[in-house]
Design a protein around this nucleic acid. Sequence first.
DNA 1: GCATTTAATGATCGTTCGATGAACAAGATC
DNA 2: GATCTTGTTCATCGAACGATCATTAAATGC
Lengths: 215, 215
Amino acid sequence: MNGTAMVGTERAGARLETDRRRLPPEERQQQIVDTAVRFFAEVGLDGKTRELAKRLGVTQSLIFKYFETKQDLIEAVYARVYLERISPDWPALIGDRSRPIGERMSIFYRDYGSRIFDHDWMRIFMFSGLAGAELNKRYLNHLSKTLLEPILEEVRMAAPNTAEPTLEDLWSLHGGIVYLGIRQHIYQMPVPGDPQHEIDRAIARFLRSFDIEGP
Amino acid sequence: MNGTAMVGTERAGARLETDRRRLPPEERQQQIVDTAVRFFAEVGLDGKTRELAKRLGVTQSLIFKYFETKQDLIEAVYARVYLERISPDWPALIGDRSRPIGERMSIFYRDYGSRIFDHDWMRIFMFSGLAGAELNKRYLNHLSKTLLEPILEEVRMAAPNTAEPTLEDLWSLHGGIVYLGIRQHIYQMPVPGDPQHEIDRAIARFLRSFDIEGP
DNA sequence: GCATTTAATGATCGTTCGATGAACAAGATC
DNA sequence: GATCTTGTTCATCGAACGATCATTAAATGC
């Protein structure tokens, strides 16, 4: 199970797969982080460096050539995993009043779901949250400020002035959607085959309760 | 740094409250489980028995007099914590058609919330879920069968025959409510001071989206 | 082909883990 | 107050942990 690219020199295939492979440092470092993401997502941040090394097919000591401490490796895993979860396009999408709010929310949560309904992300986010990492709070605060609050404003614009939605209402909708991923990847329960359909239903119910047409 | 053992009042020969105390086995066992619940909820199931012993003010070896292995202790923690979370009264409440469905759901989730919006429970449930414990699945399946499905039936009874709610709709509502506790106890974020108010809003929105009057 | 550089290994350090068993002492009974 | 029971401590085990460092061998330049 060698996942990485073979190096240019192909010498008549006499090389054993268990050979000691010499990778460019940058490539090796990336490989370690890749594997560490999957590894820590499975077993938790208390996963042992020896087992990680076994998955990598290298010795445990090699890991410490690329990361001074285990904590440094974990930080690299955080950095890797927290990228790719937030798109800079979302604020523009949310504020695009040429489209109905239901459509905007549907597209947003379709994209959002495709990024966070991910085994590794879900579990590492939960592990780090339980460990008290500051990253989770920063992430959620950022989410609230740059996405939920703008959505709230747009929903208010679209709603007849009867009863106004609150930010907590949006957190509730958000929680209901995220809970789909929690059921699947944390509790490992079966979930509906088409999450987007459930998400659209949740959005439609939300908007309908404020007399707004859904997606 | 260790504040457990030292004595403040120096009455030589007098009864020292922090002395090595000899407890009835039943009492000691209960005390260990009590402390272990709080301890594991804080640091996770990988918490070390020596640190737990320090909190108890006893030696580490004493723990193994009452529990053959650490895993046995964890099972005892599970058993302790999973009790008290489900009331036998709920099915009768949910099926009581002399009251409007909104009121029944409000009362149910008020009681449910008072039981699960708990620091120790929330975290241990999440830790054990991440560890792949079978208990979580059993708990959630039980919840679905004995509570969510009956609620679904009652909501359908109360709804005009326009659009029928699904079980997934109820999971979505449930997730939105539970997410309040997750934000508070897992991510340690500030949450609204009156959770019941938010819960009632969520229920009202849910029912309203099916043209039913809320609580 | 030989010297140089440097990934990667292998052996090992000091520490800490869960767990064990002998020794000790608190409390009841007589 | 001597005796007995047993809750608790003390000392320690082997395994496993993160981390270190001298050694080995694959790539590179001359």
